[in-house]
Write a protein that binds this DNA or RNA. Sequence first.
DNA 1: TTGTACGCGTTATCAT
DNA 2: ATGATAACGCGTACAA
Lengths: 355, 355
Amino acid sequence: MMTTVNEKKSAPTIRAVAVEAGVSVATVSAVINQTRFVSAETARRVNEAVQRSGYRPNRLARGLSTRQTKTIGIVMPTVLSPIAPLLLKSAADVLHEHGFAVLFSNTEMQVTWEEQAIELMFDSQVDGLLVVPAGETLDSLKLFADAGKPVVLLLHGLKGANGCDVIRSGNFKGSLDAVNHLVAQGAQRIAVLALPLVSESEKDRMDGFRTGILAGGRTLEPELIRVGAPSESGDSEQHGYQETLKLMNLQNPPDAIFAMNQYMAIGALSALKELNRRIPTDVALVGYDDLIWTKNLEPPMSVVAQQVEQIGRMGAMRLIGRLSNSDSCGAGETVTVDTRLIIRASSCRSQGAND
Amino acid sequence: MMTTVNEKKSAPTIRAVAVEAGVSVATVSAVINQTRFVSAETARRVNEAVQRSGYRPNRLARGLSTRQTKTIGIVMPTVLSPIAPLLLKSAADVLHEHGFAVLFSNTEMQVTWEEQAIELMFDSQVDGLLVVPAGETLDSLKLFADAGKPVVLLLHGLKGANGCDVIRSGNFKGSLDAVNHLVAQGAQRIAVLALPLVSESEKDRMDGFRTGILAGGRTLEPELIRVGAPSESGDSEQHGYQETLKLMNLQNPPDAIFAMNQYMAIGALSALKELNRRIPTDVALVGYDDLIWTKNLEPPMSVVAQQVEQIGRMGAMRLIGRLSNSDSCGAGETVTVDTRLIIRASSCRSQGAND
DNA sequence: TTGTACGCGTTATCAT
DNA sequence: ATGATAACGCGTACAA
């Protein structure tokens, strides 16, 4: 191999390739991007020069010139939640398959950071944005709206972000299904454990619960509805544990518990074990989100499973669609992806269960 | 507010700001980047123009000009592993705090994708790279070496990537600690469950196990060493389950099991429960990686905990250090972050445990 | 079929 | 203290 010795610095540019191949930069560009016809012989010479010099197009320069970077931003409040990694993976996979790079930002629930992260991505000229909103509003999205760049919201909607598409989870129906199932199993007093109802998702879940209770002919009893006080943002599992203890020590304890997130579920499990209450004999249990350990519990736990993977994929595809068809005109649509109720032994009065 | 109406398109450029402020672009740039002295009055006019027009510097253009993008790439084989999210978060947090954007790629174990992802990041002109290698070798890193751009490897080293820093976990000592602990608890026959020893980490863990066994005056018995055959890449938990069943049905079953990863641990737990073996009375158990559910088991499980967060932080800081001091000269250093042995009830012969 | 020259938005090097 | 203007690397009308 007689590779030209590139001692230490400066990558070859398109101009260098053009010189080496004895053609103009336009021709090299044409060969690389298949943007116009080039004679076979010329193309061969160009490709050879590209190989020899190890030339790689500079995406910055290309982006500056074409005004599109083939890069999209993904912003989420925390990658440590049980569903975030799968959401990130599924969206990123689709984007990579379509040749997009992914600019990522974990905003760790800090609203200020969230705004800054989005501004950073705007400044980086991303073609579009995938956001899991942490709050109710997001001013920096206006930058994208003004620039006519598409934004897809995942999981939650946002106040006054009308241009955006939203891919959300059917949380209302998810809770409803869970309650219906418990009712069908003969549960009379169904309790619910929740974190503070700050996000749309959590409110939806609670609404679904309420609706299900009434539809099932049960009554909404305040003592069975345990919502974490917004102040105690400490250990969520601890909260679930404490509340479960209180629940089971009621004069008239529940015969079923619906834990609206993984932390409540873990806390409830600890408390029930400590109290020697059997599941589902003494109390039935349904959790939220199908995590790796739920099916390995004794007994395996029934859960409302969000279709996280599908949500991530759909979000990415939607964004790509907006980008290619350039149909960023139509106002944003909202797509709801249904949850799946996975029934296991923890909620079945009679015998075993599926799965 | 008398904001100039920007109907639909084209963000304001530095030139527009210069015109609006009645100065040259050089002055605007100087004000924005604090790169040279500007009179208070002029600075005021410029800042005002920036505000009014909503000007935001284009990072692409800036990067093209300065030859550094304040962007670094993070590449990992899968974000779905138990430790990946924390690794990503801790590294990304440090980088964001220092004003870097993060280009992310999940390569899903596909070696081809891994190479492509790294090339993509190179083409995007990232200033440096943080990589969790999936295999033994990675050709595309040569691009960074040639360009004099720093690369930091996380968790595993790499054949022939001598220029890179490596932040690795003390897997050898981690296993050793676990075995020593089991020996101290009086375990006589210590079994080990492992996936195929493909990565450096897994080999180190096994070496640590062997060393600990011999140092503890026990003997290495082949029937107690269960390594998953590379072929059966199916359900890892299932493998741990099966092997545990076989182990406990030996004529002379083990009185302690060291599960070298979460899958083996879950499988072992299922099998032991099914066989009605009590932990730790009948058999002591130590797992690997401190996941959210390990301490909520009954009994809580002892584990060798990798300091994942610290590894991520150190990797990011190392990269930033190389970048600022431009001391990319010295050959790569390897830093080993010790694991912590978290002792819980699952491995304690006598009474309870800490934590 | 291919080449020339300008624009993309910044920074940096000269002048002044 | 500030202003022109040449890079930076690429795409692309327009010309040939």
